Simulated assay, not measured.
Amino acid sequence: MLAQFGMSIPLIAAPMSGGPSTPAMVSAATQAGGFGLLAAGYKTVEAIEAEIKAVRSEGIPFGVNVFTPNPLPVDPDSYRAYAAIMQREADQFGVTLPPEPIEDTDRFDDKIALLLADPVPMVSFTFGIPPRSAISSLQRAGSVTVQTVTTAEEAAQARDAGVDMLAVQAAVAGGHSGTLSPRTPLTPVPLVDLVEQIDATVGLPVLAAGGIATPGAVADVMRAGAAAAVVGTVLLRAAESGASATHQAALTDPARTETVLTHAFTGRPARGLRNAFIDAHEAEAPLGYPALHYLTSPLRKAAAAAGKPEYVHLWAGTGYRHATAEPTADILRRLAADL
């Protein structure tokens, strides 16, 4: 399935929404012999269209990742109570947060329409499984479809929906979990075990994701049956990364010694470097996505711009200490060294 993309190393640059993944990173990953995915999450259709155009001008295969709606509505009273707490935090940056919940679909239908009108070689999904009609339409347009899953049960659901491949994500992955059941605590199954289990039972090609940051880890998932390894956190400090300077600096801060799962920033489980915001608000934050994302987004952006990492979602997987400041191509080639 991946052979059509001409990959000489089985490494995929993960789609990291919110800024880290850039057209330059996608191009560098593919030109290094791997593959890159643009992140459509949180972007306007016009912005994605521009990024697709930028990568397509390089004449290389690439993909686009889309957030599939999987509503996690927030209780309005719980939202307002949390919003009052957040506004007090935001006051120091002079920003105003939305007092009422914002619920939307991240323009899912419009983004699928774009990808049908202007097809790309691969389209991947996370957060939810799209309608079978959307999957089959993209396939008819020539796109390989990939679904992010976190358990064997989710993998079976994705297979039954008709996707071509699975991105199997372990709980140690940085950023948002692709779990289809965000109200249920994540089960920490080692990635190698998860890949072996799904490869043996579901019958679709597997892309392995989560905590992969060394050549040995890449070799392990390939031996377990993965068609390729997906890496994200290890690219956050790459020359082509769009991650904020505040985020990149935190990855090397010796005082930051652990990553934790949190829903305090966005109302949906995600892994990041532990900081004061998580410590202060994790226990009181309601579940609710995307409402909490929209609530805290202005605060997080202002804090990142001000160099205040204690108020920023410092997304990172457990391999964050291996993130290096060098070109994407060099990082990927090194990760393939044990194959």
Rank of each mutant, 00 (worst) to 15 (best):
L166P: 06
I198M: 03
D199V: 10
L191F: 08
P205A: 07
Q169Y: 06
D193W: 03
L180R: 10
A167G: 02
H176E: 04
G178I: 14
V172R: 07
D164Q: 07
I198H: 02
I212W: 08
T201N: 14
P190G: 11
G162L: 09
L166N: 01
V192C: 07
A161F: 07
V189P: 02
S181C: 05
T184K: 14
D199L: 01
S177V: 05
I212N: 13
A209V: 15
V192R: 12
G203H: 04
P185D: 13
G162P: 07
L194F: 03
P205K: 00
E196S: 15
G162Q: 10
P190D: 09
I212S: 06
L204M: 09
G178H: 11
M165S: 01
A209E: 15
V168T: 09
A170I: 04
L180E: 08
A200T: 05
D199G: 08
A200G: 12
M165L: 15
P188V: 07
A170C: 10
G175E: 09
P205E: 00
P190K: 08
S181I: 05
T184F: 04
I212T: 06
V206Q: 00
T214S: 15
R183D: 13
Q197K: 14
A209Y: 06
V189I: 15
T187F: 02
V168D: 07
A170Y: 01
T184V: 15
S177I: 02
H176P: 02
R183A: 15
I212R: 14
V163S: 00
P190W: 06
A208L: 05
A167Y: 00
A200F: 03
E196A: 15
E196M: 14
G175T: 04
A170M: 05
L204T: 04
G162C: 10
I212P: 00
V195P: 01
V163N: 03
